[in-house]
Design a protein around this nucleic acid. Structure first.
Lengths: 343, 343
DNA sequence: TTGTACGCGTTATCAC
DNA sequence: GTGATAACGCGTACAA
């Protein structure tokens, strides 16, 4: 235990396949083969190599392997808004799924609009593919990605220009389902609290609501933007509830905003939910089911989206197929106590 | 725009420094130097190289660079429990901080106890350092990490065996602060809802509470474990509140559990908070400040912890210093409406 | 300041 | 089945 000072000098020699080869009395190729599943090598030599490797505490250098194989085994992910639990969950699920398939994750966080600087960095590390959860991708970068020849999957977003594959929840369908529920509940002054302006998710959810309401002969009563965030949603809810007459239902583009609306309605306006005001969220996040909220919400089936995204990416990865695909995962309504069933 | 079929055949030749060199009429080393900040190269040649590079859409291969420089520019992070918003935030902050310093993040998600399999994978990618947020590290892996010679920082956890550096919040101090607050509020039947059993954070928070209560001549009234999760916390809260007499204050080891306790108290037991029951959380997460909860909590100053962690890691990285360090970030009480100020 | 030549640790190819 | 040898793409002494 007194082997100190090993890093005072730079003598910490990194051991490589040649060291193992020497000890095992074989060639470097044999060592490589011993660590390559399904390679031509006799059981006994493999055994010798493995023993020598354990003795020397050797494990193959993935960087060198990547260089040689021209494939890093890494998938790049650019995440953002991890303060929103929904995206955090998405990242977690994506990582787990990729990991289960043997891929590592190169993670970058997009702060505001530095996306364009991040993608080249990702590509420089020779990632085998890229997954962009809920990202706003500039068309310029879409081209860069496309030209890189690496498969890319956009999760829960899509672009106007059809240049990147995507897997999304059925945001439009979710909106229509909410419309039906609210109309059936007898509501007529229905407001929409939107999320971020430039996101397809927020737009589609609102559009689904409006279109379906229109078939019932009802126009949207009001609309405010809550930026998918609690603070902004509180302000938006105040604007909505101070109208006269106030809306009798608010559909919020995510659960966080819905909980904010719930708060404002109960605490500041003393409203009874759902008797005087119905509130619907989106994401069916964990807190939505908590007794205190009992929030009706739309489940996007995150697990399915993630599963399909990863499957799509890996399929493109192995096949080299570059055709664009767009998958939509059905959404389903989860009715709880924040909405009433009949009018 | 009709240049199709580029990936039908594998003719997508990856361009390297030699291609750029040829076009610019210089040697490969010149290209390398053009992309190496602070290298000996004349402005005009650099200019020529840069132009050629842009023309060919070249950017250096980070994998090859890593192999050559024996440093990947990657920091490994093993995250877990990303369904807990606090950890998600921590990951986000860590990534951002590292990214700002020019490092990339190699992310792995620890599902349950597969930690021991993950670390070698991380090391095989030649990460320059490792950050383990809130991880339960086996002593065996601690040794593997130590032997790898790479700096490691444990965030908000520490080990009994002093073998890995760490940055933690002052969990014990947080516990004592809560004890003082509750005693001042006139509470005498004070319960503790612990988090995960084997975590130092949960243990220390509870110990701080108990020790300080003891100086006031008060023993802990009851203790239950909520595993840092909402569902388990609901069950734990029920056990506590069904006691006779019930506790008049509950200190929960995180905000999620505190909100669960709040729910059970209000919804199921019809208790007035804080008149009949005081509740204190930990983390001072965003929802704690929401009007509906108004939860008194302990702020760990996550940003500071992250900043210090990254600084510590990078310092060790550049200096090669392998001495163990343990930093503690003071916690501060944030008093809100879920506790009363006087008895 | 620039170019040459070698090394980084691995895999793939080809003879044996 | 096994072992030389040549890539992989880049950094960097060293010499010029």
């Amino acid at each position: 235990m007194d082997k100190k000072g090993r890093s005072v000098n730079g003598s910490k020699k990194t051991i490589g396949s040649s060291d193992v080869a020497r000890l095992a009395g074989v060639s470097r190729s044999a060592v490589s083969r011993a660590f390559t599943p399904g390679a031509y090598i006799s059981p006994e030599t493999r055994q010798r190599v493995v023993e020598a490797a354990e003795m020397l505490n050797y494990s193959p250098n993935a960087i060198a392997r990547s260089l040689s194989k021209k494939s890093s085994g890494l998938v790049g992910i650019i995440a953002s808004n991890l303060d929103n639990p929904y995206y955090a969950l998405m990242l977690s699920a994506l990582s787990s799924a990729l990991q289960a398939k043997g891929y590592g994750i190169l993670l970058l966080i997009a702060e505001l609009d530095d996306m364009d600087a991040l993608i080249p960095k990702l590509l420089s590390y020779q990632v085998d593919g890229v997954i962009l959860p809920a990202a706003t991708l500039s068309s310029k970068m879409a081209v860069v990605l496309e030209r890189s020849g690496r498969p890319v999957v956009l999760v829960n977003r899509y672009l106007q220009q059809d240049v990147v594959s995507s897997v999304s929840g059925d945001n439009y369908g979710g909106g229509t389902a909410v419309a039906d529920l609210l109309v059936k509940g007898g509501h007529r002054r229905i407001a929409y609290m939107a999320g971020l302006d430039d996101t397809s998710s927020s737009r589609d959810r609102g559009q689904g609501l409006k279109d379906r309401l229109a078939t019932h002969g009802i126009a949207i009563y009001a609309q405010e933007a809550g930026q998918y965030r609690h603070v902004d949603a509180v302000a938006a809810a105040r604007r909505l509830l101070s109208m006269t007459p106030a809306p009798d239902a608010i559909f919020c583009a995510n659960d966080i905003m819905a909980m904010a609306a719930l708060e404002v309605a109960k605490v500041e306006y003393g409203l009874k939910v759902p008797a005087e005001l119905a509130i619907v969220g989106y994401d069916n996040s964990d807190p939505a089911s908590w007794p205190l909220h009992q929030l009706t919400s739309v489940d996007q089936h995150l697990e399915d989206m993630v599963k399909l995204s990863v499957e799509m990416l890996l399929r493109k990865l192995v096949s080299g197929d570059t055709t664009l695909e767009h998958l939509t995962v059905p959404a389903s309504l989860v009715v709880r106590a924040s909405t009433r069933q009949t009018g």
